[in-house]
Design a protein around this nucleic acid. Structure first.
Length: 273
DNA sequence: CGAACCTCCTGCGGGC
DNA sequence: TGCCCGCAGGAGGTTC
């Protein structure tokens, strides 16, 4: 389940091997992902990657042809670099062989991800990207921004911070974890979040994501030929997935409910609205 | 516009 | 131990 830290880790891991590489061959085993893989991808031989960027959980592989390969890993996707001759695993759907002697392999069991080719000139206005809120780790994401973005929203705060128009990159796990760190109840109506609490929550989101990226970084050295799955599973989560288990701070059993169709976890003592 | 719900798909966990 | 059912989840789409 790639969350923003995993996508950032992926970006950092593949960049050194992808940037400057010329596409020798594109192999599409399956094109029925979240949306069909762009047919143009198969015609990109000879094109050179010039940069790898990230916006929200999208990876943008920019090329010298004015095209951008837009990749989203969905829930189960990963990118890894392998020798071109390496055997294709089950659910390896796309291989992009590069001049440097490696192949970028897209793997996605559930096929919730996507690989699209978008003209660079249309990136800013692309439907998937144009309405995205601020990056959580950039300066534009402040308590004031969050407070303003939640105005008029009656939905649960936890649901609201997962809305990409409010802020991008806060997935289900980190939404619960951030609220725990900020000591705020996930069911608080979003518009009721005070400015001081908004400041606390923003700080918590930045902390959680930053720490997780740091952990993802520990897997970077193994990124080449690895399965590309950094291990946030290994990190010590405070509340996520811990229903009924003792809170790591006060030992109260962790609460669980479904909010906005998503599993939500909190400590009823540490997080009092 | 906001809110609630639906959908895609497969691996895996829980239950028996 | 082994099988099977049903859940989980990112995020766009649909409906009200």
């Amino acid at each position: 389940m790639p969350e923003l830290p995993e996508v950032e880790t992926t970006k950092l891991g593949i960049s050194p091997h992808v940037v400057g590489g010329k596409i020798c061959e594109v192999i599409v085993q399956r094109s029925d992902l979240r949306w069909p893989v762009s047919p143009e991808l198969g015609e990109m031989a000879g094109v050179v990657f010039v940069s790898v960027k990230r916006r929200s959980k999208y990876l943008l592989l920019e090329t010298d042809s004015g095209q951008v390969v837009l990749v989203h890993l969905g829930m189960s996707g990963s990118l890894r670099l392998v020798p071109p001759a390496e055997e294709w695993r089950k659910h390896d759907h796309i291989g992009i062989t590069l001049s440097g002697g490696l192949q970028l392999r897209y793997h996605d069991p559930r096929r919730f991800g996507l690989v699209l080719v978008v003209p660079l000139s249309e990136i800013q206005t692309h439907p998937l990207l144009k309405n995205l809120g601020p990056e959580p780790l950039e300066e534009g994401f402040t308590g004031a921004h969050l407070h303003a973005a939640l105005r008029g929203k009656t939905i649960a705060l936890k649901v609201a911070i997962m809305d990409a128009k409010v802020v991008v990159g806060v997935g289900n796990i980190y939404a619960s974890e951030s609220l725990f760190r900020a000591g705020i109840h996930p069911r608080l109506p979003a518009e009721k979040l005070s400015k001081p609490k908004a400041e606390r929550l923003v700080a918590a989101i930045k902390e959680v994501l930053t720490e997780s990226i740091t952990q993802g970084g520990t897997t970077l050295r193994d990124f080449l030929n690895s399965d590309g799955q950094p291990g946030y599973f290994k990190q010590r989560l405070f509340v996520y997935g811990r229903k009924g288990e003792p809170c790591r701070v006060c030992e109260t059993p962790i609460s669980h409910a479904v909010l906005g169709q998503r599993a939500t976890f909190w400590c009823a003592v540490c997080q009092r609205r």
